[in-house]
């Protein structure tokens, strides 16, 4: 039953990644984001069971002592079968964790599933704690968090400390996802400094670098013509950052959005100006996926090549998607993370 369970569970709500697929259902009884109500912290770090889907997403660009670049993913998804919470197995909330480590040579990934209501997985706002099984992201406050996950062939244990403020995407956290107005709440903490240990098949590696945290929740469908999304989080040398995504449509130009984040955390939204164009494809699991992109944001004179550190960063879960570290060259230099869904 398991594989199918996953598909079924995931269809109404996978990720950032699956944000796209997750948004693809009717709102039916679930709460909807309201542009007049901005997220409030620390409460909104926690779970929103009235919304259909939600995710807490960490991606990190790390470096080993010998200069080897690494990428890391830690994700907790919540998918609700009904807009309420209850204790015990009666809870309609289900949880899904994805974790991955990407090296230039390999991509290790694994997942966890859990029922809500019994304490096996959940998120508490303050002091912040998000967990599924032994995986956790927790700390005394949201600026100082420990991050850990383990799989059959890898594990990691990191500590993250914020060096800048939270940033709210779209209109103060109200992030529109299509021309028809579908939206989510979406904020990030892109300024985490990270250090810790990766346990890989070849042994333990001390790493340091930076991480990007996203928290997004919603209930609303995307337009049924939207087939997938490409999401970029780019950290440039000099401290500026760019988050941009485009939702691909089968018969029209997709919806795109970008947040320009200045080194001090000031965010400028751009609707429809962000451009990403595939330059090179790789075949993974029989699927053609772009692994090098030309990314432009003319208003900020950004014209860069974004190249996968390891083209094989394919999370062969259900549904499968691509998520991995990238390097940036061109008008700006730096590192970042790329996520691509809907290439099945």
């Amino acid at each position: 039953m398991n594989a199918r369970v996953l598909v079924l569970l995931c269809l109404p709500g996978l990720a950032h990644a699956q944000g796209f697929a997750g948004l693809g259902g009717e709102a039916g009884g679930f709460a909807l984001p309201d542009p007049s109500v901005a997220p409030a912290f620390p409460d909104d770090h926690g779970a929103h069971p009235d919304y259909r889907i939600e995710w807490w997403y960490v991606t990190a660009n790390l470096t080993g002592p010998d200069g080897t670049p690494y990428g890391l993913q830690w994700t907790l998804f919540r998918s609700a079968l009904a807009p309420r919470e209850a204790t015990g197995f009666a809870s309609p909330q289900n949880w899904l964790g994805h974790a991955a480590v990407t090296t230039p040579e390999s991509h290790l990934f694994t997942q966890r599933l859990a029922r809500g209501g019994i304490g096996q997985a959940g998120v508490e706002a303050a002091p912040f704690a998000a967990w599924i099984d032994d995986w956790r992201m927790a700390g005394p406050d949201f600026d100082n968090l420990d991050l850990a996950a383990s799989g059959p062939d890898f594990a990691y244990d990191l500590s993250m400390s914020a060096t800048g403020p939270l940033v709210l995407h779209g209109e103060a956290g109200y992030s529109v996802k299509s021309g028809k107005g579908q939206a989510s709440y979406y904020y990030s903490q892109p300024f985490f400094a990270v250090e810790g240990v990766l346990r890989l098949p070849d042994g333990a590696v001390e790493v340091s670098g930076h991480a990007w945290f996203d928290h997004e929740w919603s209930s609303q469908p995307l337009s049924d013509r939207q087939t997938g999304w490409d999401w970029f989080s780019l950290s440039f040398e000099g401290g500026a950052k760019l988050m941009g995504f485009q939702l691909r449509e089968n018969d029209a130009a997709g919806y795109s959005y970008a947040s320009w984040i200045a080194p001090d955390g000031t965010l400028t939204p751009y609707v429809g100006d962000f451009e990403a164009e595939p330059l090179e494809m790789a075949s993974l699991d029989g699927v053609e996926v772009p692994v090098r992109w030309a990314v432009r944001l003319p208003q900020r004179e950004v014209a860069v090549d974004v190249t996968a550190l390891n083209p094989a960063a394919w999370n062969a879960l259900s549904p499968p998607y691509w998520e991995g570290p990238v390097t940036i060259t061109g008008s700006h230099e730096g590192r970042g993370y790329l996520e691509m869904t809907g290439y099945e």
Partner: peptide, 21 residues
């Protein structure tokens, strides 16, 4: 069903996880 190892329990094409849970 979320944590059971693969191959346990019935596998039917028309399983509806929401109705099951």
């Amino acid at each position: 069903p979320l944590t059971a190892p693969g191959g346990i329990g019935p596998a039917t094409e028309n399983a509806d996880i929401a109705a099951f849970l």
